[in-house]
Design a protein around this nucleic acid. Structure first.
Lengths: 202, 202
DNA sequence: CTTAATTTTGACTATATGGTTAAACGTTAT
DNA sequence: ATAACGTTTAACCATATAGTCAAAATTAAG
């Protein structure tokens, strides 16, 4: 048995690229085969169908994001530090893969149930409980205003992710180039954190 | 000459539906023809090609949104009132057409230049100047914190639009049904406004 | 070296899709 | 009535694309 994983790997790399760029419907198996330097039939040999190939790629991507997010938010720091850390870390992570958020959003919209497979409900509810405890404690101590955990989380994600989803719109509204947009993102990592902190700080 | 505009209208209605749901690449002319109850060749008779048909549909949608937004933000009210109004009005408007934001985002990403045709640069810069003047005045009077107009605008749009773009994710994170999501949106209109106001209020 | 299993390829199929065309249909004006 | 014009249709074409298959090439085993 030839344990040469190169071919399978090559396919996955090329497929991730193509799916990220074109989405599921727009992606072409031929293009994936070409940029992997392989025959198209090989895609079917290793991964049965376009759907199956996509699922593998999507699972890989989704599990990365989720584990990154979950593991970094449960540290023992103040809410303010966590918010600053979130914007810095989250936006930096996405910066290297700017098409990812729109891709994920689209694929969740296309097949909402799929995300069930990758998000372990326990993880989410653990995260929520941890943060909820911390929030309530800081609310009681008069450090921050009353706010629901879910809303705080969603607001942070919105403000971070939307920069990338709507990048062309941002560039248009701000009238800037790609380079200036990169600069803008650096500034945003702190300004967004302060925006959120100001909102909940008493 | 038979001035029966029904056919053209039927096509546009069916096309808007299909394009909104499937995006440009996913949309099928046959399906548009079917749901309009017409022959597929008629689409080409009235609108030459899929591209042209899409452009007409997109222009219709885009001009609606933009005119709605621009006209309502330049009234003579305080920033706080404008923020409250924005979230109430903007989210209510999108509520009736929840697939619209993701559609617009996708099509801007697919063809960023197209939006040039619909956004008059003068309008945007007028809006910005008006708001900037108001912001600076209220900053000087010590009512609100220092913040750049562009960032405030983008933050508001992010927080409003993302609810709809990531609706499936929200439903998942919150563990709620469609009905409960509608309820959640009502609450969000005010909670988001207060979130932003708290952030800039001194 | 020979044989068996695995991997890779090129040529193929079936189907979907955007687009075309010529003829049929209907309406209006003369 | 009919000629002229705009509208609608069915049947077609070309192409792209996911997927198949049998044979060739490569690798592993005896």
């Amino acid at each position: 048995m030839k344990t040469d994983l190169q071919t399978e790997e090559k396919i996955l790399i090329a497929a991730e690229e193509e799916f990220l760029e074109q989405g599921f419907t727009g992606a072409r198996l031929q293009k994936i085969a070409d940029s992997a330097g392989l025959n198209k039939a090989l895609l079917h040999y290793y991964f049965r169908s376009k759907d199956r190939l996509f699922e593998v790629v999507f699972e890989k991507i989704a599990s990365q994001i989720i584990s990154q997010l979950l593991e970094k938010i449960t540290a023992e720091t103040t809410i303010f530090e966590k918010i600053r850390f979130f914007f810095d870390y989250h936006m930096s992570a996405i910066e290297n893969n700017q098409r990812l958020p729109l891709f994920v959003i689209n694929e969740i919209a296309r097949n909402p149930d799929r995300i069930f497979q990758f998000i372990k409900k326990d993880d989410v509810s653990d995260l929520r409980k941890t943060l909820e405890g911390q929030l309530n404690s800081e609310i009681e101590r008069g450090i921050i205003r009353q706010i629901a955990v879910e809303e705080l989380i969603l607001n942070c994600i919105s403000l971070s992710v939307f920069n990338f989803i709507a990048k062309p719109m941002y560039k248009q509204v701000l009238g800037i180039s790609n380079k200036e947009f990169a600069q803008f993102l650096i500034h945003r990592k702190t300004s967004l954190a302060e925006f959120v902190i100001n909102s909940i700080k008493i």
